[in-house]
Amino acid sequence: MITTVVGSYPKIPDLPAPGRWRSAKEKRERGEISPEEFLQVEREVTLEVIQEQVEAGIELITDGQIRWEDPQTYFAQGLTGFTLDGLQRWFDTNMYYRIPVAEGEVLWTDPITVEDYRFAKAHSPRPVKPVITGPYTLARLSQNQYYATFEDFVLSLALALNQELRALDAENPLLIQVDEPGILRHKADFPLFREAMITLTEGVRAPLALYTYFGDVVDIYPEILDLPFDVIGLDFVAGPRNWEALEKAPFEKWLGFGILDARNTRLESLEELVRALDRVSRYVPLDRIYLNPSAGLEFLPRNVVRAKLHRLVEAKRTVLGVGV
Protein backbone atom coordinates (compact mmCIF):
# COMPACT_ATOMS: atom_id res chain seq x y z
CA MET A 1 0.00 0.00 0.00
CA ILE A 2 1.29 3.42 -0.97
CA THR A 3 0.00 6.71 0.42
CA THR A 4 -0.42 9.46 -2.13
CA VAL A 5 -2.46 12.59 -2.93
CA VAL A 6 -4.71 13.23 -5.90
CA GLY A 7 -3.09 16.49 -6.93
CA SER A 8 -3.75 20.00 -5.70
CA TYR A 9 -2.65 21.45 -2.37
CA PRO A 10 -3.72 24.80 -0.79
CA LYS A 11 -1.57 27.58 -2.22
CA ILE A 12 -1.58 29.81 0.87
CA PRO A 13 -0.72 29.10 4.51
CA ASP A 14 -3.13 29.40 7.42
CA LEU A 15 -4.04 32.81 8.80
CA PRO A 16 -2.53 35.00 10.04
CA ALA A 17 0.56 34.09 7.96
CA PRO A 18 0.61 36.21 4.80
CA GLY A 19 -0.42 34.46 1.59
CA ARG A 20 2.64 35.14 -0.57
CA TRP A 21 1.17 33.44 -3.61
CA ARG A 22 -1.98 35.47 -3.26
CA SER A 23 -0.30 38.85 -3.15
CA ALA A 24 2.20 37.93 -5.86
CA LYS A 25 -0.70 36.86 -8.09
CA GLU A 26 -2.39 40.21 -7.51
CA LYS A 27 0.82 42.02 -8.46
CA ARG A 28 1.28 39.83 -11.52
CA GLU A 29 -2.29 40.57 -12.68
CA ARG A 30 -1.55 44.27 -12.43
CA GLY A 31 1.78 43.85 -14.21
CA GLU A 32 3.69 45.02 -11.14
CA ILE A 33 5.99 42.00 -11.15
CA SER A 34 7.47 40.07 -14.08
CA PRO A 35 6.51 36.50 -15.02
CA GLU A 36 9.96 35.43 -13.76
CA GLU A 37 9.41 37.03 -10.37
CA PHE A 38 6.01 35.34 -10.11
CA LEU A 39 7.52 31.98 -11.10
CA GLN A 40 10.04 32.43 -8.31
CA VAL A 41 7.19 32.79 -5.77
CA GLU A 42 5.37 29.80 -7.24
CA ARG A 43 8.53 27.75 -6.83
CA GLU A 44 9.05 28.79 -3.23
CA VAL A 45 5.46 27.83 -2.46
CA THR A 46 5.96 24.52 -4.30
CA LEU A 47 8.92 23.75 -2.03
CA GLU A 48 6.75 24.55 0.98
CA VAL A 49 3.96 22.17 -0.05
CA ILE A 50 6.40 19.41 -0.99
CA GLN A 51 7.81 19.75 2.50
CA GLU A 52 4.35 19.57 4.09
CA GLN A 53 3.44 16.40 2.20
CA VAL A 54 6.75 14.79 3.11
CA GLU A 55 6.38 15.74 6.77
CA ALA A 56 2.91 14.21 6.82
CA GLY A 57 4.50 10.96 5.64
CA ILE A 58 2.96 10.81 2.15
CA GLU A 59 5.05 8.43 0.05
CA LEU A 60 4.17 9.49 -3.49
CA ILE A 61 3.66 13.24 -3.63
CA THR A 62 2.74 15.84 -6.26
CA ASP A 63 4.00 19.37 -6.79
CA GLY A 64 0.69 20.54 -5.30
CA GLN A 65 -0.26 22.09 -8.66
CA ILE A 66 0.74 25.47 -7.29
CA ARG A 67 1.21 26.79 -10.82
CA TRP A 68 -2.27 25.69 -11.91
CA GLU A 69 -4.86 28.38 -11.48
CA ASP A 70 -7.26 25.50 -12.05
CA PRO A 71 -7.17 22.12 -13.83
CA GLN A 72 -8.63 23.54 -17.05
CA THR A 73 -6.82 26.73 -17.92
CA TYR A 74 -3.32 25.47 -17.12
CA PHE A 75 -3.62 23.08 -20.06
CA ALA A 76 -5.78 25.25 -22.30
CA GLN A 77 -3.17 28.00 -22.08
CA GLY A 78 -0.36 25.54 -22.76
CA LEU A 79 -1.92 24.35 -26.02
CA THR A 80 -2.66 26.38 -29.15
CA GLY A 81 -6.21 27.19 -30.19
CA PHE A 82 -7.78 28.29 -26.90
CA THR A 83 -8.85 31.67 -25.56
CA LEU A 84 -10.33 32.17 -22.08
CA ASP A 85 -13.80 33.59 -21.43
CA GLY A 86 -15.99 34.19 -18.36
CA LEU A 87 -16.24 32.37 -15.05
CA GLN A 88 -17.70 28.92 -14.79
CA ARG A 89 -18.09 26.78 -11.67
CA TRP A 90 -15.71 23.81 -11.51
CA PHE A 91 -18.11 20.89 -11.14
CA ASP A 92 -20.20 21.49 -8.01
CA THR A 93 -17.40 23.07 -5.98
CA ASN A 94 -17.05 26.65 -4.71
CA MET A 95 -14.19 27.20 -7.17
CA TYR A 96 -14.48 28.94 -10.53
CA TYR A 97 -12.31 28.86 -13.63
CA ARG A 98 -12.30 30.86 -16.82
CA ILE A 99 -13.94 28.75 -19.46
CA PRO A 100 -11.52 27.82 -22.27
CA VAL A 101 -12.95 28.40 -25.74
CA ALA A 102 -11.47 26.43 -28.64
CA GLU A 103 -11.38 28.94 -31.46
CA GLY A 104 -8.75 27.22 -33.56
CA GLU A 105 -6.93 23.95 -34.03
CA VAL A 106 -5.78 22.54 -30.71
CA LEU A 107 -2.12 21.60 -30.96
CA TRP A 108 0.65 20.71 -28.58
CA THR A 109 3.78 22.72 -29.29
CA ASP A 110 5.81 22.65 -26.07
CA PRO A 111 5.73 20.68 -22.83
CA ILE A 112 3.28 22.14 -20.31
CA THR A 113 4.08 20.32 -17.07
CA VAL A 114 7.56 18.87 -17.66
CA GLU A 115 9.50 21.77 -16.12
CA ASP A 116 7.22 21.67 -13.06
CA TYR A 117 7.84 17.95 -12.72
CA ARG A 118 11.61 18.36 -13.03
CA PHE A 119 11.63 21.10 -10.44
CA ALA A 120 9.55 19.14 -7.94
CA LYS A 121 11.55 15.96 -8.51
CA ALA A 122 14.86 17.77 -8.02
CA HIS A 123 13.65 19.18 -4.70
CA SER A 124 11.77 16.26 -3.21
CA PRO A 125 13.20 13.46 -1.09
CA ARG A 126 10.19 11.35 -2.17
CA PRO A 127 9.06 10.31 -5.64
CA VAL A 128 6.84 12.82 -7.42
CA LYS A 129 3.80 11.95 -9.52
CA PRO A 130 3.07 14.19 -12.51
CA VAL A 131 -0.62 14.80 -13.17
CA ILE A 132 -2.47 16.03 -16.23
CA THR A 133 -6.12 16.82 -16.88
CA GLY A 134 -7.43 14.32 -19.40
CA PRO A 135 -8.79 15.26 -22.83
CA TYR A 136 -12.38 14.28 -22.13
CA THR A 137 -12.72 16.46 -19.02
CA LEU A 138 -10.83 19.29 -20.68
CA ALA A 139 -13.25 19.16 -23.63
CA ARG A 140 -16.35 18.86 -21.45
CA LEU A 141 -15.41 21.90 -19.40
CA SER A 142 -14.52 24.01 -22.44
CA GLN A 143 -16.51 25.51 -25.26
CA ASN A 144 -15.95 24.21 -28.75
CA GLN A 145 -16.28 26.78 -31.51
CA TYR A 146 -13.87 25.17 -33.95
CA TYR A 147 -14.41 21.43 -34.35
CA ALA A 148 -17.41 20.07 -36.24
CA THR A 149 -18.31 17.65 -33.45
CA PHE A 150 -17.58 17.13 -29.76
CA GLU A 151 -15.97 13.79 -30.75
CA ASP A 152 -13.47 15.58 -33.01
CA PHE A 153 -12.71 18.01 -30.21
CA VAL A 154 -12.07 15.25 -27.65
CA LEU A 155 -9.92 13.18 -29.98
CA SER A 156 -7.87 16.20 -31.07
CA LEU A 157 -7.22 16.98 -27.42
CA ALA A 158 -6.27 13.35 -26.84
CA LEU A 159 -3.71 13.57 -29.64
CA ALA A 160 -2.32 16.84 -28.28
CA LEU A 161 -2.11 15.57 -24.71
CA ASN A 162 -0.51 12.31 -25.89
CA GLN A 163 2.48 14.51 -26.74
CA GLU A 164 2.45 15.85 -23.21
CA LEU A 165 2.38 12.33 -21.76
CA ARG A 166 5.25 11.31 -24.03
CA ALA A 167 7.26 14.32 -22.88
CA LEU A 168 6.60 13.36 -19.25
CA ASP A 169 7.39 9.74 -20.03
CA ALA A 170 10.87 10.75 -21.18
CA GLU A 171 11.53 11.90 -17.60
CA ASN A 172 10.97 8.34 -16.32
CA PRO A 173 8.45 9.01 -13.54
CA LEU A 174 7.27 6.07 -11.40
CA LEU A 175 3.67 6.84 -12.31
CA ILE A 176 1.81 9.43 -14.40
CA GLN A 177 -1.75 10.33 -13.44
CA VAL A 178 -4.55 11.42 -15.78
CA ASP A 179 -7.58 13.09 -14.16
CA GLU A 180 -10.94 12.45 -15.77
CA PRO A 181 -13.73 13.41 -13.37
CA GLY A 182 -15.79 14.60 -16.33
CA ILE A 183 -16.68 11.11 -17.58
CA LEU A 184 -18.68 10.35 -14.42
CA ARG A 185 -21.34 12.86 -15.45
CA HIS A 186 -21.58 11.65 -19.03
CA LYS A 187 -21.23 7.90 -18.82
CA ALA A 188 -23.07 7.37 -22.10
CA ASP A 189 -19.93 8.82 -23.73
CA PHE A 190 -17.86 5.84 -22.57
CA PRO A 191 -17.15 4.53 -26.12
CA LEU A 192 -15.73 7.95 -27.07
CA PHE A 193 -13.88 8.09 -23.76
CA ARG A 194 -12.31 4.69 -24.44
CA GLU A 195 -11.11 5.82 -27.84
CA ALA A 196 -9.69 9.01 -26.34
CA MET A 197 -7.86 7.09 -23.60
CA ILE A 198 -6.29 4.74 -26.15
CA THR A 199 -5.08 7.69 -28.24
CA LEU A 200 -3.91 9.55 -25.16
CA THR A 201 -1.75 6.75 -23.81
CA GLU A 202 -0.25 5.40 -27.02
CA GLY A 203 3.49 4.86 -26.87
CA VAL A 204 3.79 5.81 -23.20
CA ARG A 205 5.94 3.36 -21.23
CA ALA A 206 5.55 4.69 -17.68
CA PRO A 207 2.84 3.16 -15.49
CA LEU A 208 -0.35 5.19 -15.76
CA ALA A 209 -3.14 6.05 -13.35
CA LEU A 210 -6.65 7.17 -14.33
CA TYR A 211 -8.30 9.15 -11.53
CA THR A 212 -12.02 9.86 -11.29
CA TYR A 213 -13.75 11.77 -8.52
CA PHE A 214 -17.00 13.53 -7.55
CA GLY A 215 -19.07 10.47 -8.41
CA ASP A 216 -19.08 6.74 -9.07
CA VAL A 217 -18.24 4.38 -11.94
CA VAL A 218 -21.13 1.96 -11.44
CA ASP A 219 -22.48 2.19 -15.01
CA ILE A 220 -19.05 1.99 -16.65
CA TYR A 221 -17.71 -0.84 -14.51
CA PRO A 222 -16.04 -3.21 -15.21
CA GLU A 223 -15.45 -1.67 -18.69
CA ILE A 224 -13.27 1.03 -17.13
CA LEU A 225 -10.84 -1.71 -16.06
CA ASP A 226 -10.10 -2.48 -19.72
CA LEU A 227 -8.65 0.97 -20.35
CA PRO A 228 -4.88 1.16 -20.79
CA PHE A 229 -4.11 2.19 -17.20
CA ASP A 230 -2.41 0.37 -14.34
CA VAL A 231 -4.19 2.25 -11.56
CA ILE A 232 -7.83 3.35 -11.43
CA GLY A 233 -8.66 6.03 -8.84
CA LEU A 234 -12.16 6.03 -7.38
CA ASP A 235 -13.83 8.46 -4.98
CA PHE A 236 -15.63 6.54 -2.23
CA VAL A 237 -16.72 9.74 -0.44
CA ALA A 238 -18.73 11.51 -3.15
CA GLY A 239 -19.30 8.16 -4.88
CA PRO A 240 -20.36 5.63 -2.23
CA ARG A 241 -21.86 3.53 -5.03
CA ASN A 242 -18.29 2.64 -6.02
CA TRP A 243 -18.67 -0.09 -3.39
CA GLU A 244 -21.45 -1.54 -5.56
CA ALA A 245 -19.14 -1.42 -8.56
CA LEU A 246 -16.57 -3.51 -6.72
CA GLU A 247 -19.29 -6.12 -6.12
CA LYS A 248 -19.93 -6.43 -9.85
CA ALA A 249 -16.60 -7.80 -11.02
CA PRO A 250 -13.11 -8.52 -9.69
CA PHE A 251 -10.91 -5.42 -9.52
CA GLU A 252 -7.78 -6.55 -11.25
CA LYS A 253 -5.73 -3.37 -11.27
CA TRP A 254 -4.20 -1.15 -8.63
CA LEU A 255 -6.88 0.89 -6.88
CA GLY A 256 -6.53 4.56 -6.03
CA PHE A 257 -8.63 4.34 -2.89
CA GLY A 258 -10.13 7.79 -2.30
CA ILE A 259 -11.53 7.51 1.18
CA LEU A 260 -10.46 10.66 2.99
CA ASP A 261 -12.99 13.46 2.36
CA ALA A 262 -11.15 16.21 0.45
CA ARG A 263 -14.18 18.48 0.57
CA ASN A 264 -15.12 18.56 4.24
CA THR A 265 -13.23 19.72 7.32
CA ARG A 266 -14.53 16.89 9.48
CA LEU A 267 -11.48 14.82 10.44
CA GLU A 268 -12.00 11.12 9.86
CA SER A 269 -11.38 8.93 12.87
CA LEU A 270 -8.61 6.38 12.66
CA GLU A 271 -11.20 3.66 13.26
CA GLU A 272 -13.33 4.57 10.27
CA LEU A 273 -10.32 4.63 7.95
CA VAL A 274 -9.09 1.30 9.26
CA ARG A 275 -12.58 -0.16 8.79
CA ALA A 276 -12.70 1.18 5.22
CA LEU A 277 -9.32 -0.39 4.44
CA ASP A 278 -10.49 -3.65 5.91
CA ARG A 279 -13.61 -3.50 3.75
CA VAL A 280 -11.75 -2.67 0.54
CA SER A 281 -9.25 -5.46 1.16
CA ARG A 282 -12.07 -7.92 0.46
CA TYR A 283 -12.01 -6.72 -3.16
CA VAL A 284 -8.43 -5.57 -3.72
CA PRO A 285 -5.37 -6.88 -1.89
CA LEU A 286 -3.78 -4.18 0.25
CA ASP A 287 -0.54 -4.41 -1.70
CA ARG A 288 -2.38 -3.11 -4.76
CA ILE A 289 -3.76 0.02 -3.09
CA TYR A 290 -2.83 3.64 -3.38
CA LEU A 291 -4.39 5.22 -0.31
CA ASN A 292 -5.39 8.84 -0.98
CA PRO A 293 -7.92 11.62 -0.37
CA SER A 294 -11.08 11.64 -2.46
CA ALA A 295 -9.90 14.53 -4.68
CA GLY A 296 -7.39 17.38 -4.82
CA LEU A 297 -6.88 19.16 -1.51
CA GLU A 298 -7.31 22.79 -2.49
CA PHE A 299 -10.88 22.87 -1.21
CA LEU A 300 -9.65 22.79 2.37
CA PRO A 301 -7.54 25.16 4.47
CA ARG A 302 -3.99 23.93 5.02
CA ASN A 303 -4.27 23.14 8.73
CA VAL A 304 -7.11 20.74 7.92
CA VAL A 305 -5.13 19.22 5.06
CA ARG A 306 -2.16 18.54 7.31
CA ALA A 307 -4.30 16.87 9.97
CA LYS A 308 -6.06 14.75 7.36
CA LEU A 309 -2.84 13.62 5.65
CA HIS A 310 -1.34 12.65 9.00
CA ARG A 311 -4.47 10.62 9.70
CA LEU A 312 -4.21 8.91 6.31
CA VAL A 313 -0.64 7.85 7.00
CA GLU A 314 -1.59 6.75 10.52
CA ALA A 315 -4.32 4.53 9.04
CA LYS A 316 -1.87 2.82 6.72
CA ARG A 317 0.59 2.21 9.53
CA THR A 318 -2.13 0.87 11.78
CA VAL A 319 -3.44 -1.55 9.19
CA LEU A 320 0.00 -2.81 8.23
CA GLY A 321 1.10 -2.95 11.86
CA VAL A 322 4.04 -0.64 11.23
CA GLY A 323 5.22 1.53 14.13
CA VAL A 324 4.14 5.15 13.90
Binding site: S23, N94, P301, R302
Partner: peptide
Protein backbone atom coordinates in the same frame (compact mmCIF):
# COMPACT_ATOMS: atom_id res chain seq x y z
CA UNK B 1 -14.54 29.72 10.82
CA UNK B 2 -12.27 27.16 9.14
CA UNK B 3 -9.91 29.29 7.08
CA UNK B 4 -9.29 30.67 3.65
CA UNK B 5 -10.21 28.71 0.54
CA UNK B 6 -9.83 29.90 -3.02
CA UNK B 7 -12.84 30.93 -5.09
CA UNK B 8 -10.97 31.81 -8.28
CA UNK B 9 -7.74 33.49 -9.33
CA UNK B 10 -6.35 35.01 -6.17
CA UNK B 11 -9.80 35.61 -4.66
CA UNK B 12 -10.19 33.74 -1.39
CA UNK B 13 -12.97 33.64 1.17
CA UNK B 14 -13.11 32.48 4.76
CA UNK B 15 -15.09 29.29 4.62
CA UNK B 16 -17.16 28.57 7.72
CA UNK B 17 -18.02 25.24 9.28
Amino acid sequence: MAGLVRAFGNRYYRKPV
